[in-house]
Write a protein that binds this DNA or RNA. Structure first.
Lengths: 189, 189
DNA sequence: TCAGACATGTAAGTCGTTACATGATTCA
DNA sequence: TGAATCATGTAACGACTTACATGTCTGA
């Protein structure tokens, strides 16, 4: 594949758990070739339109397998929304509620995105085809294998997002209940 | 609070959704003072044991409130485990199963951690106290407010982690079913 | 013909971690 | 007395993003 194609594949297929910028991608590809982990062959294009096609080498494959077997970084923990929400505890009650509502809207949109992708994929499975935009990933061996992986990673996104939405519902309820208690307390005073 | 105290508070109380290193913390604190967002006062210590105590200024409070109202970065997406798992679709079936099991063990441990913290917090709520290690966060106003926030952010961690574990169960089932199908296919051949 | 996709890169800068450096105090 | 903890910082490095630079090809 070319760098440009790799970027597209990531944007379309891996967008819910990975991203890469060109500024990261192209230098890395060159480094891979320099280290003998990949081979570059040239395309028939001209000038700036000439594509560089990369193929993994045996050495590269060994590196990849090695990386797969290394212990994996624990899921990264920084969540800006949670930090903000936590900080509102000392600042502003209304702000906390607003924050959660913003979060809920964003995550709801995300969930719909996932569900749409899932539908498309399941249709592809039924028709025994592989989504055209992702053809580069199907590989020469067995597309159905890759489709299962797609479906499962999507499921992961769906479950996480649903959990976030459940939390929004609970947190909103708790904050509103407390607000209620406070205002009625003031009145009886 | 001092830089050191802030670090401790983050490690103990915010560890499941935020972290900071000293290399980031101390220079930032100095910058905050230089920009008039915080004030530094000195402790009675001597030499390297002299603490710098920071207090937020009105200007700093405005900055903070402004940041709280800014749109929040969507939850970051990089998940190394998911990337590895996805890649095994073209490489090695067993490796995918191993990967999920590793993930499940890690997330189970995380869940237990959360549940333990939750227990401690709930006990504190019943006794109307605030956990000693986190006293710095309770503030002069109202500790119970902050405890609710703690409990809710913890709940978020719990729900997300449970969702991850649910996914592990599903994915493992799917991969094992496929393996089964394959081996029986080979036999009938 | 011209906007938008194709295609590859570099430079500058931000963000963040890790390792290092220094020294005081406490307590077993 | 010596290890652990308290306490503040810097330097080097690595990861990553953004903006920039350049040029081609396709199709409305």
């Amino acid at each position: 594949m070319s760098g440009y194609e790799i970027k597209k594949i990531i944007e379309i297929g891996l967008q819910h758990f990975w991203c890469e910028s060109y500024g990261q991608l192209y230098p890395t590809l060159n480094q891979l070739v320099a280290d003998g982990h990949a081979l570059r062959s040239e395309d028939s294009g001209t000038g700036r339109r000439k594509r560089h096609l990369y193929t993994i080498t045996a050495k590269g494959r060994r590196l990849l397998l090695g990386w797969l077997r290394e212990p994996t970084d624990p899921t990264s923990i920084r969540n800006e929304m949670q930090l903000k929400f936590f900080l509102t505890g000392r600042l502003n009650e209304e702000e906390g509620i607003r924050l959660i509502e913003e979060y809920r809207v964003r995550e709801s949109a995300r969930l719909e995105d996932y569900l749409k992708s899932e539908k498309i994929l399941r249709a592809a499975v039924r028709k025994q085809t592989f989504p055209e935009e992702l053809a580069g990933l199907a590989g020469p061996v067995d597309g159905s294998n890759q489709v299962l992986m797609f479906l499962l990673t999507l499921q992961h996104g769906v479950l996480i997002t649903e959990a976030r939405l459940t939390w929004c519902k609970n947190a909103l309820k708790a904050l509103r209940a407390r607000k209620q208690r406070r205002t009625s307390q003031k009145k009886t005073k």
